[in-house]
C-alpha cells in the first residue's frame, strides 16, 4: 500500500519551492522559464522514461502568466517522492482546466508563501490524484478542501459583496443623518 503524506508535510514541501519554479514564464518571447518544457520534464520523471518525447503542449501564449506560474509550481509539488510512487494518468486536461480557473484569483507567490494557499494547492493536487491525506477521512478531506477553495470563496463573495457594500453605505449615512436636523416635520403622528 502506498503511504500518503500528511497535508502538513505537503505544505512544508510546497513552501520550499525553489526560485526557478516561480520565475517568469516565457510568453510571446519574453520571460525566463519554458513552462511546457518544465511540465514535460516532470512527466518524464514521473513515468521514469527520461528520453520519452514531450507529451504535453501548453501553447503558452494563450495562457495567462498566472496560470503558467501555477503550472510551474505544480511541477515543483510533483517532485515530492509520493507522486513518483503512484499512477500519473490524473495529470491530464481535467487537472489543467482546474488550474486555469483558480490561477487568476491568487497572487502567484502566495501559493508558496501563504499557509492557506499552500494548503489549498496540496489538497487540490491530492484530490486530483485520487488520494486522501494521511490522518484524514475522505469526508474530512473534502470539507477541508472546501474550506480553503479559492474559487468557491470568490463565488460566495461575489454573491454577497455588492449587497453588503450597499448596506454599509446606507448604515453609515443613517448614522450621520440621524444626528442631524431632518427636514421640517409636520408634528406628532
Amino acid at each position: 500500500m502506498t503511504e500518503v503524506p500528511t497535508i502538513s508535510e505537503l505544505i512544508h514541501h510546497i513552501k520550499r519551492c525553489p526560485a526557478e519554479f516561480i520565475a517568469a514564464p516565457v510568453r510571446r518571447g519574453k520571460g525566463e522559464v519554458y513552462s511546457e518544457a518544465l511540465v514535460n520534464d516532470v512527466l518524464r520523471r514521473l513515468m521514469q522514461q527520461p528520453t520519452a518525447p514531450g507529451k504535453v503542449a501548453l501553447t503558452a501564449d494563450r495562457r495567462s502568466a498566472a496560470e503558467l506560474l501555477l503550472i510551474q509550481i505544480c511541477c515543483w509539488v510533483l517532485t515530492h517522492p509520493f507522486f513518483a510512487r503512484i499512477d500519473n494518468s490524473w495529470f491530464n486536461e481535467v487537472f489543467w482546466s482546474q488550474l486555469a480557473a483558480v490561477a487568476p484569483h491568487v497572487k502567484s507567490e502566495l501559493w508558496v508563501t501563504d499557509e492557506q494557499r499552500a494548503e489549498e494547492l496540496a489538497r487540490m493536487i491530492l484530490k486530483c490524484s485520487g488520494y486522501v491525506p494521511a490522518g484524514e477521512t475522505s469526508d474530512e478531506a473534502l470539507d477541508r478542501f472546501d474550506a480553503v477553495n479559492t474559487v468557491k470563496r470568490i463565488k460566495v463573495i461575489e454573491k454577497t459583496a455588492a449587497a453588503e457594500e450597499r448596506a454599509k453605505l446606507l448604515r453609515r449615512q443613517m448614522a450621520e443623518q440621524r444626528a442631524r436636523e431632518a427636514a421640517n416635520v409636520y408634528g406628532r403622528e
Binding site: R63, S64, P104, H105, K107, I157, E158
Partner: peptide, 9 residues
C-alpha cells in the same frame, strides 16, 4: 479578493 480576480489572464 474580487479585485484580484478581475485581472483574469
Amino acid at each position: 479578493a474580487l479585485q484580484n480576480s478581475d485581472n483574469k489572464g
